[in-house]
């Protein structure tokens, strides 16, 4: 192979490798799904290509100069002394300035269009706190009764969603790369973020502003559903809990209500009305829990109820066994209860 061919082959392999990894990257910014993320990706493509062109030109010129103007062995003569060239200076001031000026138009227009509230958007309130997300769906077209949910944001496809974000404690940042760029969530302010999903599916997201011990454990997902599936889901979420039917589940409910669980969690239809942790009325309808770091299953629930802070540093949920004094049987019953909360 000629050296150049070898270089091309190497670059192609590298490119494939990068793309290959990107395929399994659910948070990738290079695979936009929603229209907003696509708009942002479009601008990225423009500036990226421009940057690559400039990169090749500048680095190429440097490499050329390095080889062309290196001192040959035994050559001690001095080069011609040049001090500058005003015409060149003006050129390389003005050309980049014009190039950048052309970028300002799409940038500024896109900034404004992304900030606008889309017509007919569904309004959802997002409250961030260390280290989970609380969603409140107010009563509006398509939602007959207000309800709250945690970490997993369900939305209908094809309808723009306007999130109103605020924080109960420190600054967080809401990011679902496939749907839209991030928006910081600042206490005492309400920021807005538009998202839209074109087709049903699950889109991963995460907190991207450093927010303390478990910043890495503050994840989220957006679940886009067809309008009819969404309506069904929303109607289900607005209901009170499904009473446990099994004996173990009923024991679990009793344990839950007798324990300090009620101080922090709400389960609509019971006396539990705490406001510190997520609303658990329909916790079993979620794919994940604990800031989206665990799949919702028996094994993970047992780990979590046994020692939450060990799984999620700084968690406000006390250690079940060591602090709350739960027995193995209590935990078993609690799991049965929680798993029934569809």
């Amino acid at each position: 192979m000629k050296p150049r061919a070898r270089l091309v082959a190497a670059l192609a392999c590298l490119g494939l490798l990068a793309v290959g990894c990107a395929k399994q990257a659910p948070l990738s910014t290079l695979h936009p799904e929603g229209p907003i993320a696509r708009t942002e990706y479009g601008l990225w493509n423009v500036v990226f290509i421009l940057a690559v062109v400039v990169f090749v030109l500048v680095e190429g010129a440097i490499v050329f100069a390095i080889f062309r103007f290196r001192r040959r062995k035994g050559d001690d003569s001095a080069p011609k002394q040049t001090h500058g060239n005003t015409r060149l200076e003006i050129t390389w001031t003005i050309v980049p300035a014009i190039l950048l000026a052309t970028l300002t138009f799409p940038t500024v227009t896109t900034i404004f269009s992304l900030a606008r509230a889309p017509k007919g958007a569904m309004q959802i309130q997002v409250q961030a706190q260390q280290w989970w997300w609380k969603y409140t769906y107010p009563k509006q077209k398509g939602i007959t009764k207000q309800f709250t949910n945690a970490n997993e944001l369900h939305i209908p496809v094809g309808r723009p969603i306007r999130l109103a974000l605020n924080s109960a404690d420190v600054i967080h940042s809401y990011w679902v790369p496939a749907l839209a760029g991030k928006q910081d969530v600042v206490p005492s302010r309400t920021n807005h973020l538009n998202i839209e999903a074109p087709h049903p599916g699950t889109y991963l997201g995460t907190c991207v502003e450093f927010c303390g011990l478990s910043h890495a454990n503050m994840r989220l997902r957006v679940i886009a559903q067809t309008p009819s599936d969404f309506a069904k889901w929303a109607a289900g979420q607005a209901q009170n809990l499904h009473m446990p039917t099994s004996a173990l589940g009923q024991k679990g409910m009793k344990t839950f209500l007798a324990q300090q669980c009620v101080g922090c969690h709400t389960i609509r239809g019971t006396a539990a009305a705490g406001n510190v942790g997520p609303d658990l009325t329909h916790v079993a309808s979620r794919e994940t829990f604990a800031g989206g770091i665990f799949d919702f299953n028996t094994r993970n629930l047992r780990k979590w109820l046994t020692d939450a802070p060990a799984e999620k540093p700084g968690s406000k949920m006390p250690a079940g066994v060591a602090t709350m004094g739960l027995s193995k049987g209590d935990i078993q019953a609690l799991i049965a209860f929680l798993e029934g909360l569809h």
């Binding site: 990706y41 900034i111 992304l114 760029g181 991030k182």
Partner: peptide
């Protein structure tokens, strides 16, 4: 500096 793109990065 391309702000909408920076929202992602």
């Amino acid at each position: 500096s391309i702000v909408p793109s920076d929202y992602q990065q």
